[in-house]
Simulated assay, not measured.
Amino acid sequence: MLGIFNGELLILSYPQIHRFSQAISEQCPFCGQTETLPHVYVRCDFFKMLLAWFSFVFDFPAFIFGPSGRFNFSTTILIHFFLAQAKLAIYKTRKSKIQNDLYSTDHVLEMFKALCVSGVKLEFCCCSEVQLFEKQWCVRDAFCKIAEDEKEQVPGWHGRWEGKASATLSLRNLSFHINTSDMLASHNYWHWSLYLMDEGDYENVLNMYDKEIQPRFTHSGGMLDIVDACSLLYRLEIAGVDVSNRWLQLAKVCSSHYGDRVLVFNDLHLLMAALGAHDKGAQKLISGMEEAGQSSAEQASFYNSPGVPLAHAMVAHSCGQHEDVAAILSKLYASFGVVGGSGPQRDVFNLIFIKSLLKSEKLKDSSLARRLINVRLALRPTSKLNQRLFAAL
């Protein structure tokens, strides 16, 4: 997961943002040079003190995607973790500089160290076995080690992590760490909500949506916050949960993006809100996606397939036309990956497919549902969601 996160944590350079807003300068906020992604991560003089820490990194691809073929598995994962924290430190330092935030350090190396320490502390508290933590994080004791008198305790509840200094951390503090995680706060709550949904604790999922996710997408208007909210409400409805009028407020925020045509992934999530709110913008979205599929746009082929057919399947799903959904998605199932997003994010499309197969009256659809659910159970046998799907066969 860390390797994937490391590859996904990319921030837009100013020239990219400049394409959407002419008010944004194309210059680096630190050195004044024209900014590019390589400049942001490896060429700006301001960040060279951080890059020097990674003595094995000499080029842009290695810093973005991490090392390959030169280290054992545990060491590679640890390096990916450091790279991810380095990128987050760069992002937060840039943000502090742009906003003239006097309460945040602009020393990127100190921020990087703090992020590494807090991240590994949290991993220690969430780890179920001491030996597993040592194998993954205490590689040659180069970065950290567990104090001998703490090895008999259960890290999943509490424990002392020993680096340069000992410290304690309780899972009760998890909310504080999420609240202060800046742009990923809502996404972290989304992941937490997925766990609660797997447990079938829908009441607390709705509470988390109302208290943590909804206020954030309303305030930020950020697309990551929006797609998380759309996905969560859509999953709840697939599970048969009444989300009341929550779609209406979400659709109001989404409506300003109906004409964006930036990513297929984004448009499909915006469509969830439009369909949930019975918004006429749903047809505008689908028409725009169809036009994009026939254009010379960068994402044209992805809009053409699986984007547009998947959008039509979602419309059919909202109308209860389960056989139609099954017929469309049985041809697209293998290509869900090109929609974009992570595996957990794309799983909402798998759930649409499986639920429609289960509700279809066709024997072949029931047979395919059984096969897909058995695969899910084989991969995650302890998942209560997968167990509920199996029980519905």
Results as ranks from 00 to 15, higher is better:
221 G>Y: 12
216 R>K: 14
230 C>E: 02
229 A>K: 01
234 Y>L: 04
233 L>F: 14
231 S>I: 02
226 I>V: 15
210 D>N: 13
219 H>A: 14
240 G>I: 06
206 L>Q: 10
223 M>V: 14
211 K>C: 07
234 Y>Q: 12
223 M>F: 10
215 P>G: 10
216 R>V: 04
206 L>E: 07
227 V>Q: 01
240 G>Q: 12
225 D>Y: 03
226 I>R: 04
218 T>S: 13
212 E>D: 06
228 D>M: 08
222 G>C: 07
222 G>P: 00
240 G>V: 08
224 L>I: 14
205 V>L: 08
205 V>I: 10
208 M>C: 12
235 R>T: 04
225 D>V: 03
239 A>H: 10
214 Q>L: 10
212 E>S: 07
210 D>E: 14
233 L>D: 02
231 S>C: 14
239 A>I: 00
237 E>I: 05
205 V>T: 07
215 P>F: 13
222 G>A: 15
235 R>D: 03
219 H>D: 11
214 Q>R: 13
241 V>C: 06
237 E>H: 05
239 A>R: 14
208 M>G: 03
241 V>P: 01
205 V>N: 01
224 L>S: 12
224 L>D: 06
219 H>M: 09
224 L>R: 13
230 C>T: 11
206 L>N: 05
226 I>D: 01
232 L>S: 02
220 S>G: 05
230 C>F: 09
235 R>G: 01
208 M>N: 11
214 Q>F: 09
228 D>A: 10
217 F>N: 01
226 I>Q: 03
219 H>I: 07
207 N>S: 15
241 V>D: 02
219 H>F: 11
227 V>G: 00
211 K>E: 13
230 C>S: 10
225 D>G: 04
221 G>S: 07
208 M>R: 12
221 G>D: 09
222 G>F: 11
207 N>T: 15
211 K>D: 13
217 F>M: 08
215 P>W: 08
211 K>L: 15
237 E>Y: 11
238 I>Y: 04
237 E>V: 11
237 E>F: 10
221 G>I: 11
212 E>F: 07
237 E>A: 12
232 L>P: 01
218 T>A: 14
236 L>T: 03
212 E>K: 14
207 N>G: 08
209 Y>W: 07
233 L>G: 02
210 D>H: 06
206 L>M: 13
233 L>N: 05
232 L>V: 03
237 E>R: 08
208 M>D: 06
227 V>N: 03
241 V>H: 02
239 A>V: 00
235 R>Q: 14
